[in-house]
């Protein structure tokens, strides 16, 4: 099993000498991202509380950072970077399409149910 590893991350910005070195590099990257999330989660800066696209800016940042982490776990820890394009697309596109669809449908419906409770004649305050 002496297949080659691609040893660069961040579109070639950082190049590693060996696979082991790349693993530690990715660990540092993931730790930094997690630390940023935790610090933002504890302090919750007031400037990030503005609502953009139906959600707080801070929550958008959390979700984007989570997807960044998911990318590096899949690409470097699960070796997706070294698999053929066909395998990569079969796994990632299937999941991304189905999950986005599911999330859209359920969140849309949840928001609608909230509106019904909020505006129509349903009493919850007792």
């Amino acid at each position: 099993m002496a297949h080659a590893h691609k040893l660069e991350i961040l579109r070639g910005l950082i190049k590693f000498k060996s696979n082991t070195q790349k693993i530690w590099g990715v660990l540092i990257l993931l730790s930094i991202v997690t630390a940023v999330e935790v610090v933002l989660g504890i302090y919750k800066p007031a400037s990030l509380m503005t609502v953009v696209g139906g959600m707080k800016l801070l929550n958008w940042i959390f979700i984007i950072l989570t997807i960044v982490k998911a990318y590096y776990i899949t690409w470097d820890f699960m070796h997706m970077r070294d698999e053929t394009a066909g395998l990569r697309r079969a796994v990632v596109w299937t999941a991304v399409f189905l999950i986005s669809y599911l999330i859209f449908i359920l969140l849309q419906e949840g928001g609608y149910v909230f509106d019904v409770y909020d505006e129509e004649f349903v009493k919850r305050d007792f």
Binding site: A95, L98, I99, I103, L106, L107, E109, G110, G111, F114
Partner: peptide
């Protein structure tokens, strides 16, 4: 992954319902 996203999306549904 689809099973877990089913759970998390259902969580999102309930959360939006009681936003």
């Amino acid at each position: 992954a689809l099973t877990f996203s089913g759970f998390l999306a259902a969580y999102g549904f309930s959360r939006f319902k009681f936003i």
